[in-house]
Design a protein around this nucleic acid. Structure first.
Lengths: 118, 118
DNA sequence: ACGATCGTACGATGATTTACGTACGGTCGT
DNA sequence: ACGACCGTACGTAAATCATCGTACGATCGT
């Protein structure tokens, strides 16, 4: 399976924002940013249970928007955040988003529910 | 007409990203950021023709996500970017997005079509 | 008071998004 | 070669989104 990834200069900020304007995908990026090697199943497990076919949809959105690389390796797909490309094209964007996500997550943990608000 | 706006600490990055992950709304924010006083019609005109009722929808999304203030004033609605709140809660985010949008706009102007790509 | 203007509300429509189950095609280990 | 595993493809259903036209309520200027 060879995936089509946009070149760095084909990435558009609007697509990145709409890709990350979704809780599941934002969580995926947080997981990938935290480091370590990840494949689809490992992220899916970290996220809690979600259908694999649903994640396939999210991988496509993240891939098409230029947020992640998806590299087949044996029977797995390695998932890598395209930090270098994103930082080069949109300096500070990814860091601002990630720290914003941490801000929100911290607030949710103190709101008495322990649940994400969406 | 009194609009409901989220408090600063109710703003969530996911909502901001999904609000700005849309070309029309991203353009609106670019216009507001450029300065000057704006009401719905003035932005609508700057954007080119779009139905007013469509814009009403976009105002709601931008308002609900905490990106803009919408202040009734006489028969108009003044539109103001919530830069202070966004900068306080998500430092660097808005600037990164706006300069990213400028980057993309510059690229589109050189792609031979002169058209936005979505 | 009247007509023009501003912008929302409402209702409708088509497109897109998110989600799931099932089935399939590769790859790995044995 | 066989069975387990990885992840996609496909079909489908429900929800959301983007857009428009029309109608309305409020305000302004005269």
């Amino acid at each position: 399976m060879a995936f089509r990834h946009p070149d760095r200069d084909q990435i558009r900020v609007e697509d990145v924002l709409s890709a990350l304007g979704n809780g599941v995908r934002l969580s995926v990026v947080r997981i990938l940013d935290a480091g370590g090697e990840h494949n689809c199943t490992s992220v899916l497990n970290t996220l809690g249970i979600t259908a694999k076919s649903t994640m396939t949809h999210h991988w496509r959105v993240l891939r098409d928007s230029g947020v992640i690389w998806q590299q087949p390796s044996g029977r797995e797909n390695l998932l890598v955040l395209r930090r270098e490309d994103l930082d080069a094209r949109y300096p500070g964007l990814l860091d601002a988003i990630l720290s914003g996500a941490r801000t929100d997550a911290a607030a949710h943990r103190h709101d008495g529910t322990g649940q994400p608000s969406r």
